[in-house]
Design a protein around this nucleic acid. Structure first.
Lengths: 194, 194
DNA sequence: CCTACGTTGTTTGAGGTCAAATAAAATGGA
DNA sequence: TCCATTTTATTTGACCTCAAACAACGTAGG
């Protein structure tokens, strides 16, 4: 396929044509656009190489990885570390259990909590797959020096910190007192009888 | 919420504990991990601020954006520019049409092609939403200087180029002659009668 | 013509995605 | 002991996701 993307220059010109007078923050636009494009490209490469041979999706791999590294863990923390919602984790954990890679046990002291851990088969899989995964991490960043990879990680981390520390505040500010629109999708309230 | 993530240092230690002797490329691991984390954080912020008020998902916004900037376009090119598969585009375009934001016409000369364009309502929506979107791009990169944003865009672009130019070759190499496993999900062949 | 073959958009199926609603359990007062 | 509140995981519903199969159309060679 090798990229049919428009060049950044072309895009900039087209945006200016569309928005003539309105001022645009170009550097920031380029940064955000490329974060998403890179994440998608990388994810796709992994899903079609290492992960395909292990029959894992990116998300199921991440969940497995978190539990593999940290050991038995409460589900809320797994979701947090994996960067997915707890609702998503419920489903992902279910498919991993069905494949015999993960186990779910109730918390002995607190009945609300659930604990996840890997089965021996899950452990074996991760011991095999993780080195291959890391080799692909090296592949996709092949064009960067070690220092550049660290710079990249640092710049991205600063964005994550910004969103996580100031994001909520910002979102409230933008609403300016108004009620947030409900999400288009999602569960509806049980309509009151009467 | 403000991040319950483990520090990178903690993670590194846990990984070493798990893989003692196996050598790991740490810088590359950090870079890839942060690309994905940043992409997810940014996407979520956008979906819960600008996009929520316009009732758009990230993907539907990107599709709208592409057609807005470039004008009437063949669907294959829209999918390409938006970075989604043509199958996904079919669905997204359908919901955008249903909302009256987009139109679909057949190609006058080639019956296989379909063209997408914005309705006047779609145009109005984008003219309103895009400046707000760009303001959030500025917000999430607030911790970076203009030059750092450009550096970031450049580093990410080099990863995209690497994956797009060498990815396929690499995936074939990894298979080493073997047939790729079919994806776990996806359409099954109609089973032959007999 | 016709018949491969190539190219395009759509369908399919398994699965991931979120926020909000909900259920189940714990906690802390009165 | 209740009962309201808080905290947790699950369910729900609309949507996105991909690759592979497929159908519809175009094209080039006989």
């Amino acid at each position: 396929m090798v990229s049919g993307h428009r060049s950044i220059g072309d895009t900039e010109k087209a945006v200016q044509a569309k928005l003539g007078d309105t001022p645009i923050r170009h550097e920031q636009m380029a940064a955000v656009a490329n974060i998403y494009r890179a994440a998608a490209a990388v994810r796709q490469h992994f899903e079609n190489s290492v992960l395909r041979s292990a029959e894992l999706t990116w998300t199921s791999f991440v969940v497995l990885w978190v539990v593999w590294i940290w050991g038995e863990m409460e589900t809320r923390r797994v979701a947090e570390e994996a960067g997915i919602s707890k609702g998503t984790l419920t489903g992902v954990a279910r498919t991993l259990q069905a494949r015999g890679l993960m186990e779910r046990t109730g918390h002995p002291a607190d009945g609300r909590l659930a604990l996840l851990s890997l089965t021996p088969e899950g452990e074996r899989l991760m011991a095999r797959v993780f080195p291959e995964f890391n080799a692909e991490e090296a592949f996709v960043t092949e064009g960067l020096s070690n220092d550049e990879s660290l710079d990249l990680a640092d710049l991205l981390r600063r964005i994550v910190v910004q969103v996580e520390t100031r994001g909520e505040e910002r979102r409230l500010e933008l609403l300016d007192g108004e009620d947030p629109r409900p999400r288009r999708s999602g569960r509806r309230a049980k309509e009151p009888r009467g």
